[in-house]
C-alpha cells in the first residue's frame, strides 16, 4: 500500500496542471492592450438620453469603438463583440440618434445638434484606467443636421 499515496500525489499534480492550462486558456487570448474601459452617462437637456449611438474615434493611431445608451442614458464602449473599451489617446466623440430603417426597424431621426455628431467638438482623452465620461448635451448648442439619407 505504498503506491497509492504516490499516485494520489501525481493525480494532484495533474489536476493542478489542468487548472493552470485552463486558466491560461481563459486569460491568455483576447485583450487588446491599446484599449481601456470607457463608460458614462449621457443626458440631453438634463434628461437621460436613451438609445443614442456613441462613437469614439481616435485622432492619431487606432480605430473607433462604439457604444449605445440604455434607458438610463448609461453607455459602455465596445470594440468588438468580445472586446470592450475604446482606443487610448485623444478621441473625437460623436453622439447620434439618427439611423436608417432596416426593413424590420423603422428609421430614426436625429434630435441632437450637429456639434455633437457630424461637426463634433467633443474631445476626450482615454487613459490606461477605467475611464468615465459623462456628457451633458443641450438642444441650444446649435442646429440639427439630418445626415443619414435612405
Amino acid at each position: 500500500m505504498i503506491r497509492f499515496p504516490s499516485f494520489g500525489c501525481l493525480a494532484k499534480h495533474i489536476l493542478s496542471l489542468v487548472a493552470i492550462c485552463f486558466s491560461i486558456s481563459i486569460t491568455g487570448c483576447g485583450g487588446n492592450s491599446d484599449l481601456a474601459s470607457v463608460t458614462g452617462k449621457i443626458t440631453f437637456d438634463d434628461k437621460p438620453l436613451a438609445d443614442a449611438f456613441v462613437v469614439f474615434s481616435p485622432t492619431s493611431a487606432g480605430t473607433t469603438s462604439y457604444g449605445r445608451t440604455n434607458s438610463a442614458g448609461e453607455y459602455e464602449m465596445v470594440f468588438s463583440d468580445n472586446e470592450k473599451g475604446a482606443w487610448l489617446g485623444e478621441n473625437i466623440v460623436r453622439i447620434t440618434t439618427g439611423d436608417v430603417g432596416t426593413g424590420s426597424s423603422s428609421a430614426k431621426k436625429e434630435i441632437l445638434p450637429s456639434v455633437y455628431n457630424v461637426n463634433s467638438t467633443l474631445r476626450q482623452t482615454v487613459e490606461k484606467k477605467t475611464n468615465r465620461f459623462d456628457f451633458d448635451l443641450k438642444s441650444s448648442a446649435g442646429k440639427i443636421k439630418q445626415t443619414i439619407t435612405e
Binding site: 465596445v78 439611423d99 436608417v100 432596416t102
Partner: peptide, 16 residues
Amino acid sequence: QFRSNPPSIASADVKR
C-alpha cells in the same frame, strides 16, 4: 466611412 468588422451593437447605418 466606418471601420471594418463593427460590433453587433453598431447602428444600421454603420452596418450597411
